[in-house]
Simulated assay, not measured.
Amino acid sequence: MKLKLLAPAAVLTTFCFAMPTSAENVQQIQQLLSTKECGGCDLSNAGLVRANLSNAQLGEANLMRANLSRAQLMGADLRGADLRGASLFGANLMGADLSGADLRGADLREAYLVDVNLTDAQIEGANLQDAIGTPATVMDVADVYNWGVRAAQQKNLDEAIAYFNQALSLDPEFAPAYLARSIVRAQKSDLPGARGDAEIALELFAIQNNPQAFEATQQLIAQIDAAQNPDSGNNGGGGFMRFVGSMGALLLRLML
């Protein structure tokens, strides 16, 4: 009989240790899932992966570090919600109201943000990489540029160009993106395109008084010209590709 009495106790002890140690309020989570109404609730650290929370009422809710990955939050009322450090990876937030919400440090990668209201929302440090429909007003050109640099380092050249295009749509005078796109185009053997981007970068670096980047861009143009005219005596070949590859260190220094 002792063994039979001890076994349930052991299971209960294991269950208790597996529960969150502080903020997750099971009763309020159950309320949210059953009624979709939990304004002002403490849902910090809640596990809500793939939860169907369309049109949920979550105004002023505490969702710090909650896991809402892939959750359906279409039309949800999240006004003033605390979403610091929350995971909204791949979440569908179409038409959600996030006005006044605190999204600092939140993971919004691949989230669907079409028609989202972000008025007065705090988004410093939020990861918006590959989010769909992100308003241009909340995008950081330096972040987009950095995503492109990382993609180029991983040899995802088409993806890198797409990021640099996006950065330039946000700021047409963002010189580092022209230089970076020039380097990637050279790696893809698009020398005319690479030269065109390098010329724009050169002009902008001159205007913006960046002598280091200006000189490096001049060298890149000279290398491109030599590669386009191998009979000139300056053989591009492998030396040209090595030079282009070495420009990656400059791109890192230009990360803002």
Results as ranks from 00 to 15, higher is better:
residue 18 A to V: 03
residue 19 M to A: 15
residue 20 P to N: 13
residue 21 T to G: 10
residue 22 S to D: 08
residue 22 S to R: 11
residue 22 S to N: 12
residue 26 V to H: 01
residue 27 Q to L: 04
residue 27 Q to C: 07
residue 27 Q to P: 00
residue 27 Q to T: 12
residue 28 Q to H: 11
residue 29 I to A: 12
residue 29 I to V: 15
residue 30 Q to E: 15
residue 30 Q to H: 08
residue 32 L to D: 08
residue 33 L to P: 03
residue 34 S to H: 08
residue 35 T to H: 08
residue 35 T to E: 10
residue 35 T to M: 09
residue 36 K to E: 12
residue 37 E to V: 10
residue 37 E to D: 06
residue 38 C to E: 05
residue 39 G to P: 03
residue 40 G to S: 02
residue 41 C to W: 01
residue 41 C to N: 02
residue 42 D to H: 05
residue 43 L to E: 11
residue 43 L to F: 13
residue 43 L to P: 08
residue 43 L to W: 13
residue 43 L to Y: 14
residue 43 L to D: 07
residue 44 S to A: 15
residue 44 S to E: 11
residue 47 G to N: 13
residue 47 G to Y: 11
residue 47 G to L: 10
residue 48 L to P: 14
residue 48 L to N: 14
residue 48 L to I: 12
residue 49 V to I: 13
residue 49 V to T: 12
residue 50 R to C: 02
residue 51 A to F: 05
residue 51 A to S: 04
residue 51 A to W: 03
residue 52 N to T: 06
residue 52 N to M: 06
residue 53 L to Q: 03
residue 54 S to K: 13
residue 55 N to G: 02
residue 55 N to H: 11
residue 55 N to W: 06
residue 56 A to N: 06
residue 58 L to F: 05
residue 60 E to M: 10
residue 60 E to H: 07
residue 61 A to Y: 03
residue 61 A to I: 06
residue 62 N to G: 02
residue 63 L to E: 09
residue 65 R to L: 09
residue 67 N to Y: 08
residue 67 N to T: 11
residue 69 S to I: 03
residue 70 R to K: 09
residue 71 A to R: 11
residue 71 A to I: 05
residue 72 Q to T: 09
residue 73 L to S: 05
residue 74 M to P: 02
residue 75 G to E: 05
residue 75 G to H: 05
residue 76 A to P: 02
residue 76 A to F: 01
residue 78 L to F: 09
residue 79 R to D: 00
residue 80 G to W: 00
residue 80 G to L: 01
residue 81 A to C: 02
residue 83 L to M: 14
residue 84 R to N: 10
residue 84 R to K: 07
residue 88 L to S: 05
residue 88 L to Y: 12
residue 89 F to Y: 15
residue 89 F to N: 10
residue 89 F to L: 14
residue 90 G to W: 09
residue 92 N to M: 01
residue 93 L to P: 15
residue 94 M to H: 11
residue 97 D to R: 07
residue 97 D to T: 13
residue 102 D to Y: 11
residue 102 D to E: 14
residue 102 D to H: 14
residue 103 L to D: 04
residue 104 R to D: 15
residue 104 R to L: 14
residue 106 A to E: 07
residue 106 A to L: 06
residue 106 A to M: 06
residue 107 D to K: 13
residue 108 L to P: 00
residue 108 L to N: 01
residue 109 R to A: 07
residue 110 E to V: 13
residue 110 E to S: 15
residue 110 E to T: 15
residue 112 Y to F: 12
residue 114 V to T: 13
residue 115 D to G: 04
residue 116 V to L: 12
residue 116 V to S: 09
residue 117 N to T: 11
residue 118 L to F: 15
residue 118 L to T: 14
residue 118 L to Q: 13
residue 118 L to C: 15
residue 120 D to Y: 00
residue 120 D to A: 04
residue 121 A to K: 04
residue 121 A to E: 01
residue 121 A to H: 08
